[in-house]
Design a protein around this nucleic acid. Sequence first.
DNA 1: AGATCTACCCGCACGC
DNA 2: TGCGTGCGGGTAGATC
Length: 271
Amino acid sequence: MPELPEVETMKETLKQKLVNHKIVGISVRYPNLIEYPNSQDFEKEIVGEIIHNLSRRGKWILFELDHYYLLSHLRMEGRYLFRSSNDPIQKHEHISFLLDNGEELRYKDTRKFGRMHLIEKEKLYQQKPLSELGLEPWDVDAKYLKTKLKAKSIPIKTSLLDQSIITGIGNIYANEILFLSKISPIRKSNNLTIKELNTIIENTRKVLEDAIAQGGTTIRSYESSEGVHGRFQQNLYVHGKQGEFCSICGTEIIKTTVGGRGTYYCPKCQK
DNA sequence: AGATCTACCCGCACGC
DNA sequence: TGCGTGCGGGTAGATC
């Protein structure tokens, strides 16, 4: 389940192997993964493009090509693998990018939730999806958050997951950030003080930076593009721990639903 | 009109 | 063994 740290790790790994290589062929076996443009145009336009660089915005990986950016969102289970082009296509390998060195970059996604866009370079931030994104966690300050949240009566956890405010926080880390901040996930967004918002910002950076330093933390089947497994959920305090006891006060961790998402918290520590 | 909620896309894991 | 259900990021469309 890639969140920002896993995406960052994956991007860095891919960068080593892809920069300065040309895409000489492509096969899209599940067209619904291509969100924009239609998959025929996508295939036609991407062949012949050279990969100049890779970067990340929120949970999107950006492949900088000659005329376009290829944007890839892994959603729940997306990942990239390198195979020799004569290796048989295995289950859930939905897209193949044939490279000029004979290797094949394959996009694998068991649940087919991932999405790709091919965006003209000059329209990168004028067009969805990047036009909708808020700030990276490292660019956010309390004043910005206060402004964004002042008209929002929805739970703070829902706001943390809103990619148009801060981009890159997923459900696992939202639970962890609020635990470390000692703030209840169901507090109204517009009722938080500047001090509390600062605490949230600090903990957001801490949680994400720690996870990046570990090469990604995840619940299930993360592996980097070279097949290296991330360290598994070793630093989680509350996510997935209903029925276990708070490491600070010993109270039982509660699971509930907030904004349709599984939410875990300590009812005593988090006010 | 703007804020918020709901359904949808998917396949797997899990519990009965 | 089989069936039903929950999960979850982002967004389109419905509803408040």
